[in-house]
Design a binder for these strands. Structure first.
Lengths: 159, 159
DNA sequence: CTTATTGCAAACGTTTTGCACGTTT
DNA sequence: AAACGTGCAAAACGTTTGCAATAAG
């Protein structure tokens, strides 16, 4: 019923990047690989700033400029290598599409993100789209609430 | 199976606004009502800028300042009168919660938004949250793809 | 009369862009 | 050699904030 999604290998993603670049006659620069690797290894949801920091920790000095980060993240998203979601305050966050597919449960207190997959929902989504004559290409779902830990420590929600 | 959500009356929303204001000892200004009405009448998903424009068309000269729009939209969202979602490019969009509850189907071509509700999905969501010990308070779901019209006129997706 | 709210304009943080240089093909 | 990508710094955006004036309770 509820599954955890399975992680792809880095090589697979790298190949995917290579293919995409080739297909569009774009160039395979070290920056793009470094960013891909940084996101893959750290495995989470990052703001562009965090991606910048992670990418430059991989290397010695701060080599990659932030403009490149933005350009690369946009590119990754456009070609399907990454996705962005924006919850509440922190603004846009990117994650590499290194998992088969999953949805998000977001704790509104601690901002923790729990990932999950539900086959049933996937299927119903398809059925709904079809019923509307809608050609679904992607989808996203977020459940907002309080995670188990935050519920325990809950006394007040503030005014 | 797939329902269209039912629209609340404006009076109900207005009352909801009034109650909220009273409860927090805040003041019932014309601006807040105008913004509420503008969003209600136009019935859609708006950027703050659009809300500004709609609100000022209701009135004569451009009376409401944009700071007020931002403050009001944040307020509406905080108290549950409105919700924001951010799809792709256009940034954050607000919609009044004038419908019972619904999810969104978003055409990636023309950016049209189709709303729908699925009881089944609602229930599965609850079950999933419960299984994780997650106290779900809200949720959102978006299906991305091409709407019927755009599929008809499809030849190219661009590079 | 007291307190919240507004509008303005300035301030902010984030994202994008122009350009000359460096890299990849 | 040609074309794309990069880094930098400047510019552009969207959003927030300080303040004095205004309106609501």
């Amino acid at each position: 019923m509820i599954k955890k999604a399975k992680k792809k290998s880095f090589d697979k993603l790298l190949a995917q990047l290579g293919d995409t670049l080739k297909k569009h006659s774009l160039k395979n620069t070290s920056q793009r690989e470094i960013i891909l690797k940084a996101m893959y290894d750290n495995d989470g949801h990052f703001t562009p700033e965090e991606v910048l920091s992670l990418s430059n920790h991989t290397q010695k000095g701060g080599i990659i400029g932030q403009a490149t980060i933005y350009r690369t993240l946009n590119f990754f998203e456009k070609v399907g290598l990454a996705s962005s979601i924006s919850f509440g305050i922190d603004g846009k966050k990117y994650e590499l599409n290194s998992y088969e597919h999953h949805d998000h449960m977001i704790c509104v207190k601690c901002e923790k993100i729990i990932e999950f997959v539900s086959e049933e929902i996937e299927q119903i989504q398809l059925a709904i789209a079809k019923a509307q004559g809608f050609a679904m290409k992607d989808h996203a779902m977020q459940l907002y609430g309080e995670c188990q830990e935050c519920q325990k420590s809950t006394k007040e929600t503030r005014a």
